[in-house]
């Protein structure tokens, strides 16, 4: 990285800020795709489109229902923090995708894009906890703390998983990392980092096995008291985070826009949707990783595994140069 202040070393064109609207639209469409897919899979598990709002249209029915629902209030709720927590997830997901190049265009060609993404995913710690805290209810608070317990287990492995592609590409610029994978995707020769990254995406989206913070066993946890629009925004934020995480994996591990026939931007979308489908499907297959058990797995298995992966990648990178 010779010249981080200028954008010349990046193979990416920065588009006008106005295009952020389009990026938001794509993120929204991806989030809806994930929700529709989840609805369809849930209906299949239930055996038929149970009830009025079954199957793939369920997200729309849910959204309509929540928009009409009246807000529930609790005694002595800390409204400000509560609302910040609930709405923040969506904002965080939007900030994440600003550094993800769509083919050759990006909104924010930051030289430390990988760190930026990492900083945004840490925001989720604060936001989920605030959602749990704000409602002033026991189950809700327990949910918030459970998320932090998970966070202590997944965050360091996730950070070191992001380090591996950065070492191999010798840059923290997302576009340059994508460009460094000519011929061989990072997902292929750093599979441990890729898998740990995917776990991390599920975790910061409070998704599937990492959903104990909002689990049935704590009566809905952090979102127990969320209702109406607040709940809609919170759920939309989770899907958007999942979509943003999948989108970020494309330049980091799956070669960015590289691929035959189709243009770069189309490949990015295809790969994102494929990864998103895997993440959505994962939830069907796995029970919750209870935080008290996962903590040790994170520190004793995932962290050493991903550190070893970094070492291997570093040795290869030194040997190649």
């Amino acid at each position: 990285m010779d010249d981080p202040t200028s954008m010349t070393d990046s193979p990416i064109t920065t588009v006008a800020p106005g295009w952020a609207i389009v990026a938001l639209g794509i993120l929204g469409a991806l989030a809806v795709t994930a929700a529709v897919l989840d609805g369809a899979l849930a209906a299949r598990a239930r055996g038929g489109p149970g009830g009025k709002m079954g199957g793939p249209v369920r997200p729309f029915g849910e959204a309509a229902r929540l928009m009409r629902q009246r807000r529930r209030t609790t005694v002595e709720a800390d409204r400000l923090l509560w609302r910040i927590g609930g709405a923040g997830l969506l904002v965080t997901a939007a900030l994440m995708v600003t550094v993800v190049p769509l083919g050759e265009w990006t909104i924010f060609d930051l030289d430390v894009g990988v760190m930026w993404f990492n900083a945004m995913d840490v925001m989720v710690w604060a936001l989920v906890w605030l959602t749990g805290w704000g409602a002033n209810s026991a189950h809700s608070l327990v949910g918030g703390y459970r998320f932090l317990a998970h966070g202590l287990g997944y965050e360091l492995p996730l950070m070191f998983a992001l380090v591996a592609p950065a070492i191999a590409a010798e840059t923290l610029n997302v576009g340059a990392v994508a460009a460094a994978q000519e011929g061989l995707w990072f997902a292929v020769w750093m599979p441990v980092a890729f898998l740990v990254y995917l776990l991390g995406v599920a975790a910061f989206s409070v998704w599937g096995p990492f959903a104990p913070a909002i689990g049935t066993d704590v009566s809905g946890g952090a979102r127990a008291e969320l209702s109406g629009v607040d709940r809609l925004v919170f759920e939309a934020g989770r899907y958007a985070l999942l979509a943003a995480g999948a989108a970020f994996a494309v330049p980091m591990f799956l070669g960015g826009g590289a691929g035959p026939l189709l243009p770069g931007w189309a490949w990015v979308l295809v790969k994102t949707v494929a990864l998103l489908a895997v993440l959505v499907w994962l939830r069907r297959r796995l029970p919750a990783f209870r935080p008290d058990k996962f903590m040790e797995v994170g520190w004793m298995l995932l962290l050493p595994a991903v550190l070893l992966q970094d070492l291997v990648v570093a040795v290869i990178a030194v040997w190649r140069s």
Binding site: A42, A45, R46, G47, T216, D217, R284, R285, P287, R290
Partner: peptide, 13 residues
């Protein structure tokens, strides 16, 4: 309660 919605839905069915 174990967080496996899919298997729970199957059991309910």
């Amino acid at each position: 309660l174990a967080g496996w919605d899919d298997a729970a839905a199957e059991a309910r069915r």
